[in-house]
């Protein structure tokens, strides 16, 4: 078994876009890393700071929120709200010494299966480069 760090990533995906895009990526037989665990949410407007915090507390190395393209939210501005919450949390994490890059916001549409796979790959690579969450490192020690 390889010793390479395999991050645990939680993705909060909107049912109208990124969740469907994940299905499409699957139908298209696209390859992407298996590190991401998807949580279906009705809109990224449902995303709350505490959901990501709980994920980090439970040992996630990274969290991202994937919503519709800006201007295309089914509930008008859920994705804009989520973006602000992600920015707020990134700042709070930074203040307690956790890399703000461990949380991110992505936008895509339901028809963007390839982009879904690309995002999973990109975010997984980013988190691999950061290494395990500083919270987890100490827990294991």
């Amino acid at each position: 078994m390889s010793d390479e760090f395999e991050p645990r990533i939680i993705a909060f995906c909107c049912q109208y876009c990124s969740y469907s895009a994940a299905d499409m990526a699957g139908s298209m037989r696209l390859q992407y890393p298996t590190n991401v665990e998807i949580v279906l949410i009705p809109c990224t407007g449902r995303f709350d700071v505490i959901l990501a915090l709980k994920a980090f507390e439970s040992g996630a190395d990274g969290v991202y929120v994937a919503g519709c393209l800006e201007g295309n939210c089914h509930f008008v501005d859920g994705n804009i709200r989520a973006k602000k919450r992600v920015a707020y949390l990134a700042n709070e994490l930074k203040k307690i010494g956790i890399e703000p890059e461990r949380i991110a916001m992505y936008n895509l549409s339901a028809s963007m299966g390839p982009r879904f796979a690309e995002i999973v790959t990109e975010f997984t690579d980013n988190i691999k480069a950061l290494g395990p969450s500083p919270v987890k490192k100490k827990l294991a020690a």
Binding site: D48, V49, I50, L53, K54, F56, E57, E92, L93, I96, G97, I98, P134, V135, K138, L139, A141
Partner: peptide
């Protein structure tokens, strides 16, 4: 309640990070 949850979580994460 929500802000209590957030602050408590941040403090726990900070403590865990420091071991």
């Amino acid at each position: 309640t929500k802000e209590v949850e957030i602050l408590a979580s941040l403090l726990r994460l900070d403590a865990q990070k420091e071991g």
